[in-house]
Amino acid sequence: MLQVNDLTVRYGDLTIVDHLSFTVEEGQWLMIVGPNGAGKSTTLDAITQGTAYAGQVLFEGEDMKKKKAAERARCVGVLMQNHFAEYAFSVEEVVALGRYSCAGVRSRARWYAGSEIGFEGEFAGTAGGTDVRIGKKPDIGTKKKFGAFTEKRPGVRTKENVGLAQKSRRESGLHAEKHTGRSNEDEQAVENALALTGMSSQRKQSILTLSGGELQRTFLAQVFAQDPKLLLLDEPTNHLDLVYQKQVFELIEKWLQTPGRAVISVVHDLSLAKAYGTKVLLMNRGRKVACGPAVEVLVPEHLDPVYQMNVSGWMRQMLGQWGG
């Protein structure tokens, strides 16, 4: 899916990423680990074209440099670690912005297949302890409506079919559509994203009044609404307490179950990398140290020289305090 060839990023004389190559396939969750300053976040920046680089970043064989901004966002979505809200946008407005790149694009059953997993209730349950406002189950009726939507036959002149025809006509002028209002499909995607992340009941709330965990879930909902094929996470749970960390990682794991998707995340916590990653990339000073399955990469031979300490020994010592 994603192929990074010989990626090099330099700021002046400083080489941040040094001839890095790796690939990510469908269904994979690549964990990028390494000490501070290893070039992990910069690698993500290069993939989203946020920084100048030498080398190649190919998405499904196409050069990311040559894609337009909206096309790129259709392929790659990003969840950052920090969000500083300045203005009192509502949760819904932020999530709806995720549809910016796809307004007017034809319906994708993929998204709705993803939402059929039906773990919204479970999520609301786990959140109940920390946040009493969550607890309202999402409206199941909207999903049924979409089922009817996909089954419509061409040629039958129903109200919906006329709407579809108008929509496809508008698609030819995609640019014009991009700036105008949301279509039904966008509404649906926003609804689903809000439901998935358990933010439905707070949709009208100002983002200035949200807690750190709620804010992160809002932006997670935004990237879910954006519906990219590859999701990049830059230390997504850095400021979140344990409950939210677990929630976010479980949500992303569920999101990944739909075919045609992949995740790359930068994490500091090696246990998280081991637990959720299907593939691990260990970096140090901009270079690749090892890349492969977690059991092969996260071993003392690789870790100890990079972190210059006995990593597994320390981890065991930490865990030992919990007994059993």
């Binding site: 989203t48 074209q49 946020g50 337009k68 901004a69 909206a70 096309e71 790129r72 966002a73 259709r74 979505g77 990003v78 950052m80 969000h83 500083f84 809200a85 300045e86 203005y87 946008f89 932020v94 912005l97 995720g98 910016y100 790149s101 932006f219 935004q222 990237v223 954006q226």
Partner: peptide, 13 residues
């Protein structure tokens, strides 16, 4: 207004 990086990520040129 939500953030320039976020704008880039959602596909704004």
């Amino acid at each position: 207004a939500i953030g320039e990086d976020n704008a880039r990520h959602i596909g704004v040129d």
